[in-house]
Structure formats: structure tokens, C-alpha cells
Amino acid sequence: MDRPGLDALRERTRALCAGFPDEYWRETDRDRRYPQEFVDTLTAAGLLSVLVPTEYGGGGLGVTEASVVVEEINRSGGHSAACHAQLYTMGALLRHGSDRLKDAYLPPIARGELRLQAFSITEAAAGSDTTAIATTATRDGADYVLDGHKNWTSRIAESDLALVLARTAERAADRTRGLTLFLVDLRRVRAEQPEALEVVPVRTMFNYATNQVTYRGLRVPADHVVGEVDAGFRHVVDGWNAERVLLAAEAIGDGYWFVERAVAYASTREVFGRPIGANQGVAFPLADAYMQVRAADLMRYEAARLFDAGEPCGAEANMAKHLAAEASWAAANAALDTHGGNGFVDEYDVERKFRETRLYRVAPVGNNMVKAFVATRVLGLPRSY
């Protein structure tokens, strides 16, 4: 990908990540501790505000550059889940937020004074059918009042702001209508109406800082609507496309990490008098995985290019996410097989990254849902749901 400054950004990110070695990530994973020191370092370096336009003090870069940042975090052995939301939430806020909202919040985000890390959408009953969410937002004077429950809202405890999707009208023939996106200032909520927000941490198989969240009469000023009332689903899609591109880049970073670690191990580990990498049973799965990662990498860049150009990119973003998830999983299994029993030992870090990279086949959208999207929206086949 030939884009001015991309290599320099890659090297800059890599240099910062070098200050957080395997031991750091191993410890935070074991304790399920939020990697605050790492996130603070990226924030101070301006890497979490690369998408904020320069007129607001940000980097003024695109999703292409943001994807390189998260790729390098994962390729270094880290885990971008600690901070990736501040990058992909920008798609909805930048394209649909009012000038007032952008003027009020983007400069302090760019300065590292505010964190926008929470995207509150998913509900247990709705699952992948976002148009079926039941959390409501009812107009009451100058405010909207939010009531409902979200079962996957990550990093809300570490965030100052949250994007929340809620229902403002009954579900109709056009299922995408009737949902509205809100920018919630969590500082104000915690200070003025703490009883309106209940956060219950959820322990997962890897360190993800996710929560169940209940909104009970939470008041949000009407001028904190992002975009148009009842059109929030369409606004969220911009965030989703960015999210798919960025998580594809994370999976690609994982894929490279697995291949590089496995190649190093296979080149030095000797059994029966020779390096195990000389055996085709070890070498071929690694070669296959590497080729899959490289192919997914190309689709990631194509999806990012389209997004940055303001062109439709739903198909490419979804395909990039699918291909990258499958590639990283192939690389993970090849790396685990290469390490044998040592792959299950935490000091080699393969088992940790193995757990982390498994997410991408499920989230932010399951790979079967991607196949359904491509089948119907790209190939024109009849809808299955």
C-alpha cells in the first residue's frame, strides 16, 4: 500500500509497542486488568486520535492509517481491544455528528483529555439483528430518557463518552428506521445521575473489559443525538464498516505474529537431529497460513481505501473481516501445532494470542453473517433472513 507516511507511522507504532513486551500482556491477561499504561502511552503519542481532523487537533488521517496502528499493536504481541473503539466510533461521529458536538468533544479527544471507548448497541434478545433492539429513548422536554439493557458494552468503565443506540419509534416495514444514535457524556451521568447507569463486568476467555449495562431513566440532552432521529441505524453502519476494517487489521496483525513466532520456533527447535521446520508437516501449514494472511491484507487495504474515499465499502469491509479472521485462525492453529506442548504454556504466549484471535470469527459480526451478506447483497441470491 503506497501512501505517504504509512511506513513512518508503522515504525512509530512498533517502537511504542516495544515498550510493552510479552510479559506485560501476559500479566494483564492473567489478572484481567485493563492495560491502562499502554493506552495512556498511545493516547499521549496521538495514535488514538489519528482519525480526528486536523482542525480539531487530531491527526487528520484515514482508516487506512488507523488500521496500520492496530495491526502493529497485535503484530507486536499486544491486544488492540483495549483501545480500538476510539478509532472505529469516529466513523459515525465524524460523518453524522453536529458541528456543536464535534466542536465540544473532538478537541479534548484529540488532546487525550477525553476517551470515547464505549459503543453500546448489542442486546441479548436481538443478537445480530440490531434492528430488533428494545432499549428505548423517549423525548421529555429538552432531553431523551433511555431505558433498557445492553449485554456487550466494552470499556464503558474506562471511557468518558459512549455511543448508544436506542429505539425512538416502533419497528415498521423499514426495519432500519426508528433507531437513534446518542452521544452520552458519562462524566455527567456519573456526577448527576449515577443511579441511572448500572455496569456489571463480564469475565470472558480473554482480557476484554466488557460489561452488561442497564439504563434506568438516563437523561441525554436532545442536542446529543448523532445525525437524524430515527436514522441511527444508517449512521451506525459507518462505524461498523470502519470497525470491520480495523478488526480485520487486528486479525492480520495476529496472523503475522503467529507465523513469525512459529517460524522462529521451527527454525531453532531440533528433534530427531534437525530443525522441525524442515518437516513439510510443519512447514506447509505455516506457508498456507502466511498466504492467507497476505491475501486478507490486500482486501483490508482495498476496503480501507474505499472507506477513506467516501465510497460504498460494505462488501469489501465485510469480506476483509471474514478473510482476516479465517487467516488468523489458520495461523493460530499452525503456530500451536508447531509449538506442540509448549504452545499451551503461557510463557510462549501462543495460548494467549490463540484465545484472543478466536474472537474475530465471531465479532464484530459472525462469519456466517458475512457469507449471508455477500450471498444476498453482492451475488443477488434470495434473502435467508
Score class of each variant (00 low, 15 high):
G227H: 00
E170S: 01
G57T: 01
P312R: 00
T136I: 12
T376I: 01
G141A: 02
A372I: 01
S154R: 09
A124Q: 13
A142R: 05
G343R: 03
V69T: 03
D129T: 09
A304Y: 12
H79W: 14
W25H: 05
V245E: 05
R294M: 15
A324S: 15
L146Q: 06
L106C: 15
R115G: 12
V164M: 02
E302P: 06
F344L: 09
A332S: 07
R26D: 05
D2V: 03
A296F: 13
T89Q: 13
V184M: 00
R33L: 09
A320R: 07
D99E: 12
Y385Q: 12
E250N: 05
A157D: 10
D346G: 04
R111N: 07
A45G: 04
A124C: 08
G366C: 01
H96N: 12
E302K: 09
H224G: 01
D238K: 02
S80Q: 08
D223N: 11
K371F: 05
T210A: 11
D140P: 03
E158R: 07
V374D: 12
G366L: 01
V164D: 08
D174K: 15
C83G: 13
A196H: 02
A118Q: 10
G59Q: 02
D174H: 15
W329P: 06
K102F: 08
Q280G: 14
A287G: 12
L186N: 04
V63N: 13
I252M: 10
S328Q: 01
S49Q: 00
L246A: 10
T131C: 06
E326F: 04
A309L: 14
E326V: 06
D297Y: 11
G273T: 03
A66R: 03
T138Q: 14
L359R: 11
V200Q: 05
A262N: 02
Y88L: 15
Q212N: 13
N333G: 11
D140Y: 06
V69H: 03
G141F: 03
G232N: 06
G58H: 04
I121S: 07
Y301E: 15
V263K: 00
A137E: 12
F354W: 14
F307T: 10
M319Y: 14
R377A: 07
E326L: 08
E228N: 04
A248G: 15
E23P: 11
E198A: 15
G343M: 02
D40G: 01
P382C: 03
G239K: 10
A278V: 00
A264G: 03
A320V: 10
V69I: 00
E72H: 10
L286H: 00
P107Q: 01
T138D: 14
A125M: 11
T135H: 07
A320L: 09
N151Y: 01
H322C: 07
V213P: 13
N279P: 00
V378G: 08
P53V: 08
A132S: 08
T89M: 13
F284S: 13
Y34W: 01
M90I: 06
P35D: 00
R14A: 15
L359G: 01
V245R: 07
A303F: 05
T180M: 10
E302T: 13
D297R: 14
L114S: 09
A126K: 09
E228C: 02
V39F: 07
V365I: 15
V378E: 05
L101E: 11
S267P: 11
G277D: 02
L101T: 03
P285W: 05
R155N: 14
R216E: 12
W329G: 08
